[in-house]
Simulated scan of single mutants.
Amino acid sequence: MTYDPLKAAQTIAFFAIQQGNDIDVLKAVKLVYLADRESLRRRGHPIQSEARVSMPHGPVNSTTLNYLNGAFRDDGGWSGVLSDRANHRVGLANPEINQDQLDRLSTGDIAVLETVWAEFGGMSGFELVDWTHSNIVEWQDPQGSSRPIPLDRMMAAVGLERPIERAREIESLDQASRLLASL
């Protein structure tokens, strides 16, 4: 369960398809975070396997934001799904991509993404910033910098029991997956 750039790109592609094949970057990163949060609430695990941080504009998935900002050369399939960021937007690399081709996303992932889109898809990026500042209790104002959001704090915020133990289980699975992948 290490970070999967292709899965993250397909998550953003799902939202871009709903938006008409491109989406505001700020809106995309908020929706990705909200999808992970909803997945935690429903299924006990996030869609993306990555660190999350509080930033001035609210919570974000750190590695996904770095990919959106072009920070990685080895894109792990990202560029086959999404175009480079331009004018604060990101779009599909191929306008023919449709939801059926988003094969890294499970049926459960798609159900979560559909729920998040139904609730938040009509909001702009800055409306989502305001909403997350007011409603995401695990977000803490980083005073112009960034601050980690531990998985157990997200779990507690969505009402999961034993968040520390559950977060450790997920982190142990991630470590084992990384170790096996390196063999």
Rank of each mutant, 00 (worst) to 15 (best):
D75A: 03
G70N: 14
N61R: 09
N21H: 09
D4C: 10
S83L: 14
A8D: 07
I170Y: 12
K27C: 03
F72C: 09
G121Q: 01
K30T: 12
W78N: 09
Q99A: 12
D36Q: 07
I164K: 09
H57N: 10
R85Q: 11
Q99V: 12
G77C: 07
N69H: 15
H133P: 12
E161Y: 08
E50K: 11
L82R: 08
M123G: 00
E119C: 00
V112R: 11
G121L: 00
P59E: 14
P59F: 12
P148N: 02
Q19G: 00
G80E: 15
I23V: 15
N21M: 02
L151N: 15
V90R: 13
K27H: 05
G144F: 08
L6I: 06
D130C: 00
L105N: 07
H57W: 08
V129I: 06
V137C: 02
D103A: 14
L31N: 01
I136M: 04
T63F: 07
T2K: 15
S49M: 13
Y67K: 10
P5R: 04
S134P: 01
L180Q: 10
V81C: 02
A28N: 11
V112H: 10
V90D: 08
S83A: 15
E169C: 08
R147G: 06
A35P: 00
R41E: 14
A28C: 09
S124A: 06
G80D: 15
M155E: 13
G76N: 02
N69R: 15
V53M: 05
N98Q: 09
D4Q: 06
P95Q: 07
S79N: 15
P95S: 05
N94T: 10
A51K: 13
R89E: 05
K7G: 02
R43S: 13
L160Q: 01
F14R: 04
A167S: 14
D75F: 06
S172I: 02
H133G: 09
P95Y: 02
I12A: 03
V32T: 12
P46T: 01
L40Q: 14
Y67S: 07
L26S: 05
Y3G: 06
D130A: 12
G125T: 13
A35S: 11
F126W: 14
N135R: 06
R162V: 00
F126M: 06
V53Q: 09
P148G: 07
G20N: 13
L160E: 00
D22Q: 14
S134K: 13
T11W: 09
S106F: 15
D84A: 15
D36S: 04
N69W: 14
L34W: 04
A51Y: 13
W131A: 00
R166E: 15
R41K: 15
Q19W: 03
N94D: 15
E114P: 03
P56L: 10
G144C: 01
I149W: 02
S146Y: 08
G80F: 08
R153W: 03
E119L: 03
A93T: 01
R104W: 04
G144S: 05
N61H: 12
P46H: 01
S177R: 05
E50V: 11
D141W: 11
V53S: 10
S62L: 12
R162H: 11
M154H: 06
R168W: 02
E161R: 15
N94C: 10
P56T: 05
W131G: 02
A16W: 08
M154G: 06
T11A: 13
L173F: 12
A181N: 04
E96G: 09
R85S: 12
G76L: 03
F14T: 02
